[in-house]
Simulated scan of single mutants.
Amino acid sequence: MAKTQLNVRVDEDTARAARERALASGMSVNRYIEELVRRDLGELGQTFVDAAADFMKQYETVFAQEFGADREGRRRPVE
């Protein structure tokens, strides 16, 4: 995968913490930041999926009544 340079300004305490955490994890600061972002994306993505599933579960009957679909999403005949 091609790499893109990203310049970020942080305060000295944050920079020091990033260096220390990266060293303790046995990786470069660059790799450490990449892992943080990837982990964050994964968690946010899963949070979205969980919230969407919860929403659909809560409003399943409302959608079925409004749109006439059974649990498998097939259209029911209009009564």
Rank of each mutant, 00 (worst) to 15 (best):
T4Y: 09
L6E: 03
L6M: 06
N7T: 13
V8F: 06
R9V: 12
R9I: 08
E12I: 01
D13M: 11
D13T: 09
D13P: 01
T14S: 11
A15L: 11
A15V: 01
A15D: 10
A18S: 10
A18L: 15
E20A: 14
E20W: 01
A22G: 04
A22M: 02
A22H: 00
A24T: 11
A24L: 15
S25F: 09
S25Q: 14
G26D: 05
S28G: 14
V29S: 01
V29F: 01
R31I: 07
R31D: 14
Y32P: 00
I33V: 15
E34A: 04
E34N: 13
L36P: 00
V37M: 12
R38P: 01
D40M: 13
D40S: 15
D40C: 10
G42M: 12
G42L: 14
E43R: 15
E43A: 14
L44C: 03
L44G: 02
G45K: 05
Q46K: 14
Q46N: 12
T47Y: 07
T47A: 14
D50F: 06
D50G: 08
A51L: 13
A53E: 15
F55V: 03
F55Y: 15
M56G: 07
M56T: 07
M56E: 13
Q58L: 11
Q58I: 07
Q58D: 10
Y59G: 09
E60N: 10
T61L: 11
A64Q: 15
Q65D: 12
Q65M: 08
Q65K: 11
F67H: 12
G68S: 07
A69C: 07
D70E: 02
D70Q: 01
R71N: 01
E72H: 07
G73F: 01
R75G: 02
R76T: 03
P77T: 04
V78W: 05
